Amino acid sequence: MPSSAILPFTEANTRRVASLFRQAMRTAFDHALKFEVYRNATLDIRAQFEANRHVSDPEQLERLIQKTEAKLAHWKHPDPYIPPSRPGGTKYQRNIPSPKEPIVPGNW
């Protein structure tokens, strides 16, 4: 068994798989222009994860996780969706407070 393998059905493994699932959902959202397309993609992704839900062999589990990570890297969108108010979004720090000191020095 490889030293980096995580035993199945542990909290660490659950978090790792849940993280991959969330990444897959976000990647599907980045590629979908219509809700119907996104919904179908989410159903396919969910079916793929559910098909491997009861894998208990640590080596097979590690191979599945590596395969999923490679697939996510391959499908990573070059311009992912960023919510407007998040850092990097279009509204991030749009209405910052104006400074208290005069902008142009001098006595006008």
Rank of each mutant, 00 (worst) to 15 (best):
M1K: 13
P2G: 15
S3P: 09
A5K: 06
I6N: 01
L7W: 13
F9V: 11
F9L: 14
T10D: 07
A12W: 04
N13E: 15
R15W: 15
R15Y: 15
R15M: 15
R16C: 13
A18E: 11
R22H: 10
R22G: 06
R22N: 14
A24L: 02
A24W: 00
A24E: 03
A24Q: 01
M25Q: 14
A28F: 01
F29S: 02
H31N: 07
A32N: 12
K34S: 06
K34H: 11
K34D: 04
T42M: 05
L43P: 00
L43N: 13
D44L: 07
I45W: 04
I45N: 02
R46Y: 03
R46T: 08
A47S: 08
Q48L: 10
F49E: 00
F49N: 00
A51G: 08
N52F: 00
R53W: 03
S56K: 13
S56D: 15
P58D: 06
Q60T: 15
Q60V: 15
Q60W: 12
Q60L: 15
L61E: 00
L61M: 08
L64G: 02
I65W: 07
Q66L: 12
K67Y: 01
K67Q: 12
K71T: 09
K71Q: 10
K71M: 12
L72N: 00
L72M: 02
A73P: 06
K76Q: 13
K76D: 05
H77Q: 11
Y81W: 11
Y81L: 03
Y81R: 11
I82H: 01
I82T: 09
S85H: 10
S85Y: 10
R86L: 03
G88A: 05
G88L: 04
T90L: 04
K91T: 10
Y92T: 04
Q93N: 12
Q93H: 09
R94N: 04
R94C: 07
I96V: 15
E101D: 14
E101N: 12
E101A: 03
E101W: 08
P102H: 08
I103F: 14
V104G: 02
N107E: 11
W108R: 15
W108H: 13
